[in-house]
C-alpha cells in the first residue's frame, strides 16, 4: 500500500512538474498557455514505445530519435501557434490554435499508435523489494531526471549570460534586443526546450504507468494545475507545484477514494487563483498582468 502510494506520488509529481516546466518556459516567452504541450508528452512516449517495444531496438536508438524529434516538434508548434496569433492580432487566438493542434495530434496518434496503451520499456528493469512489494528502478530514474532537468534549467537561467538574456527577454523583449540578444530566436528556442522536456517526461514517465494515445490533454491540465499552484511564470514554482499537487492527488486517491483527489485539486486550483493568484512561490507579478 505505502509503496503503491509512493510510486503513484512520484509518477504524478514528476510528470506534472515536467509538464508545468515546459508550459512555464513557453508562457514566459510568449504569454501563451500551450494546450497542445501534452501532445509532445504523448509523442515522446509513443515513439519510445514504437521503437523500443514494437521494433525491439535498444534504448540508445530510442534516445537518438526521440530527443531530436520532440525538440523539432516543439519548433513546429511554435510556427503553427505563433504565426496565426501574430497575424490575427486577437488576444485569444492562441486558444484556438493550441486546441486545434491538440485535436490534430490526438487523431494522428490514434492512427499511428494502434496499441491502446503505450508503455515503453523501462531504462532499467526490476526494482527494490520493500515488504514484499516492488519499488521499480524506473520510477526513481524518473524522479532523478526530473530533478536534474530542474536544477540544470535553474543553473542555466541564473548562472549563464545566455540565461540572463532569456530572463530579460521575458520581461522586456524590446530593450533586451538592443543588447544583441536575438529575442525571436529565443521564442523558437523556448518552444524547442519545452518540447524536449515534455518529450522526455513522456518517454520516462510512461514506462512507469499506462498512457493512452489520447491522454495528451490530461497531462497538459496536470501541468497547468501545478503551474498555477506553484505560481504562474516561476520555474521553482513549477517544481514545487508539481510535487504538492502530485503528492496530494496520490495520497487522497489511495486513502479515501479515486475521485476525491481530483475534486480536491480542482478546489485548490480555484482557491489559489482567487485568493493567491501569485501561487505558492509568488513569482508572478500581480493579477491582471499579462
Amino acid at each position: 500500500m505505502i509503496v503503491d502510494v509512493l510510486v503513484m506520488t512520484i509518477f504524478l509529481s514528476s510528470t506534472s512538474a515536467l509538464m508545468a516546466l515546459s508550459l512555464t518556459i513557453v508562457y514566459n516567452s510568449t504569454r501563451v498557455i500551450n494546450f497542445s504541450q501534452g501532445e509532445i508528452f504523448i509523442l515522446g512516449c509513443g515513439m519510445a514505445y514504437q521503437i523500443g517495444v514494437v521494433m525491439k531496438l535498444n534504448m540508445f536508438v530510442v534516445a537518438a530519435v526521440a530527443i531530436p524529434v520532440t525538440a523539432l516538434a516543439g519548433l513546429l508548434l511554435e510556427r503553427l501557434i505563433m504565426i496565426p496569433v501574430r497575424r490575427s492580432g486577437s488576444p485569444v487566438a492562441w486558444i484556438i490554435t493550441t486546441l486545434s493542434i491538440t485535436l490534430i495530434s490526438q487523431s494522428l496518434f490514434a492512427l499511428a499508435f494502434t496499441s491502446a496503451q503505450l508503455r515503453p520499456d523501462p531504462l532499467l528493469a526490476g526494482g527494490f523489494k520493500i515488504n514484499g512489494q516492488e519499488l521499480p528502478y524506473q520510477i526513481l530514474i524518473l524522479l532523478a531526471v526530473t530533478l536534474v532537468i530542474f536544477f540544470a534549467y535553474e543553473i542555466f537561467l541564473n548562472k549563464t549570460t545566455f540565461g540572463i538574456g532569456v530572463r530579460a527577454a521575458a520581461t522586456d523583449p524590446e530593450t533586451t534586443s538592443t543588447f544583441g540578444v536575438p529575442v525571436k530566436l529565443f521564442v523558437a528556442g523556448s518552444f524547442m526546450a519545452a518540447g524536449l522536456i515534455a518529450g522526455i517526461g513522456g518517454w520516462l514517465g510512461s514506462s512507469a504507468a499506462f498512457v493512452l494515445p489520447t491522454d495528451g490533454l490530461r497531462f497538459t491540465v496536470a501541468g497547468f494545475v501545478a503551474m498555477i499552484v506553484g505560481g504562474l511564470g516561476s520555474t521553482r514554482g513549477a517544481l514545487i507545484g508539481g510535487f504538492v499537487v502530485g503528492a496530494m492527488d496520490a495520497i487522497l486517491r489511495n486513502t479515501i477514494n479515486p475521485g476525491i483527489g481530483e475534486l480536491f485539486i480542482a478546489a485548490i486550483l480555484v482557491i489559489i487563483l482567487v485568493f493567491r493568484p501569485q501561487g505558492i512561490i509568488g513569482a508572478a507579478r500581480t493579477r491582471g498582468d499579462a
Binding site: 480542482a266 487563483l273 499579462a290
Partner: peptide, 27 residues
C-alpha cells in the same frame, strides 16, 4: 469571486471552474 482578475487570469479562473464542474459532475 473572481473579483478584479482580468484577461488571462480571468480565463484561468474560468478554466479552473470548468475543471471543477466536470469533477463535481463525476463525483
Amino acid at each position: 469571486i473572481s473579483g478584479r482578475a482580468m484577461d488571462l487570469y480571468f480565463g484561468l479562473i474560468t478554466l479552473a471552474f470548468s475543471l471543477a464542474l466536470v469533477t463535481i459532475a463525476q463525483q
